[in-house]
Design a protein around this nucleic acid. Structure first.
Lengths: 290, 290
DNA sequence: CAAGATTACGAGAGACGTAAGCATG
DNA sequence: CATGCTTACGTCTCTCGTAATCTTG
């Protein structure tokens, strides 16, 4: 149950392949094989079937535990090293659409009060933000998504401290100016079943919506919000976006959504570390949630 | 952050000595020194001061994390190996006074329905029962203590799944037959400040009572309830005990307590494993708490 | 100066890589 | 039969124990 072994086990389980895991972890295939064998010998149970590589019942169990254990181990390390590190740092990880005006304003206020502070921002996708925060790699995480009003976001597992609501704003369908839909006072998503949507997997993935059956006409793999809005403006398809994002744009029209009731929501995650309220991270968190 | 290193770190922190930790863990003093040095190098921080050996701020932090991590690691291992193990086992760890008639009755009912079941009972002190249950070394744990009516027990940390109330019975002062107190309808503990109590540290430790200032006249280090009652009967001192324990004894008198209001409470801890409701452990838990 | 932590060094175990073996889709 | 996991084996690293050294109450 060496964390080293757990890490490669998780990697093998996730990739479904010893060789792929080996490559990712910079090991040889042989080393991975030996590590898994060692783990199975240690636990006295088969964890994986080979050919095809799949989890046994015991493996399923271990996978859940291992993921959490690794996160907690990382969190512990971050917490301890943080005690030693000079205070005053502020690391903030965000999903692209979590960067909203209230967040920008809060950050500006923090910087106004602590002039010497040099915050670090990191834009990443949702799982990365969640683990970066859970492990303490960053102090705060902001994640976004679309849900029914005042419903919490559905987040991937390692949610040790509970996420807190920061912002909710109306969700709208973005269409190019001049699009037939642009004149509608509102639309029901069910009526857009045969429209084409833009699948921006790292900005606003369709599969995270509490609605399904939306067809993707174009896939955008990047994380740039402006590229997404540009694609909509150029008529490549529709996108579901927070209303404030479209304010003041001449080339895009925001069509309110009738049904289902849907909002864009931003939530704050805090690293499980020392909650010293004088730290910039704690002050920013207070501003965001207060 | 090898668990191995964490374990020796915890041991050093608890014993306050490298050599004592080494002895307990069957290492040489030198090995322990090297392990702590490795941990400090890995984390880039001093964890302990030497001479005297004490925790630094970072060390305090790590100690809390390390304890939990080790428990969770053990729990994960137990959960995984349990999946592989043949079902039908039932391990039960109890503090001495947690063995009450309702517990005995529940166990009898379980055995009546599953004739082939061979339960394993283990009597241990409170911290041992808590960690044995938290790590999954045993399926169920029963702990006891004295509190105000319907207050939960104060238990040592690793309380991942919350304890559940099993029994509450009146707390009484046990005195030998013929003792002056035996005629009282009730006593206030405050009035017994200059009486002598028996400190049975592994059965009913005085320092776990929500009352202080009780003087110990005799220390009993064992875990046998009958020795404790015998000591009271022989006039060595008073003891606080659950009333049912004294029922039908001619040599002991149970004196009800007026103030503070106090009950003897038994709580159930469940191992954080698969809650398969057909397992004997789950059925016994249902009987005890139902 | 004595108790107790650290440092030096050597032996053993363990982990990884290379390369050959072997099973299955 | 080729992809991909396993096994064999050599090397290198890492860890622990012995023993000498250092530190401080």
């Amino acid at each position: 149950m060496d964390p080293h072994l757990l890490r490669t086990f998780v990697e093998v389980a996730e990739t479904g392949s010893f060789s792929a895991a080996a490559e990712r972890l910079r090991y040889t295939q042989s080393a991975v094989s030996q590590q898994i064998a060692a783990l199975e010998a240690d636990l006295g149970t088969a964890l994986l079937t080979r050919r095809p590589v799949a989890l046994t019942a015991a493996g399923e169990r271990l996978l859940r535990h291992a993921r959490l254990l690794l996160v907690r181990l990382a969190a512990a390390r971050a917490d301890v090293t943080r005690t030693a590190a000079p205070p005053g740092r502020l690391g903030l990880a965000l999903t692209p659409l979590a960067w909203t005006p209230p967040v920008a304003a809060a950050l500006a206020r923090i910087r106004a009060t602590s002039a010497r502070l040099r915050p670090r921002l990191l834009i990443a996708d949702l799982p990365a933000v969640v683990t970066a925060t859970a492990t303490g790699a960053t102090d705060l995480g902001l994640v976004d998504g679309f849900t029914a009003p005042s419903d919490p976001l559905r987040l991937p597992e390692p949610g040790d401290p509970r996420p807190v609501r920061v912002t909710e704003s109306p969700a709208v369908v973005a269409v190019p100016a001049g699009h037939p839909l642009a004149r509608h006072a509102s639309v029901d998503l069910a009526d857009l079943a045969d429209a084409y949507w833009i699948e921006a997997s790292r900005v606003a993935p369709l599969d995270r919506l509490p609605v399904d059956g939306l067809r993707a006409g174009l896939h955008y793999d990047g994380a740039e919000v402006t590229v997404l809005t540009g694609l909509v403006a150029a008529g490549h398809g529709l996108a579901l976006l927070p209303a404030p994002l479209l304010a003041g744009r001449a080339d895009l029209v925001a069509v309110p959504i009738g049904a289902p009731r849907l909002v864009h929501r931003v939530e704050l995650l805090r690293a499980p570390a020392a909650a010293d309220p004088t730290e910039p991270a704690a002050r920013l968190a207070a501003l965001l949630t207060g």
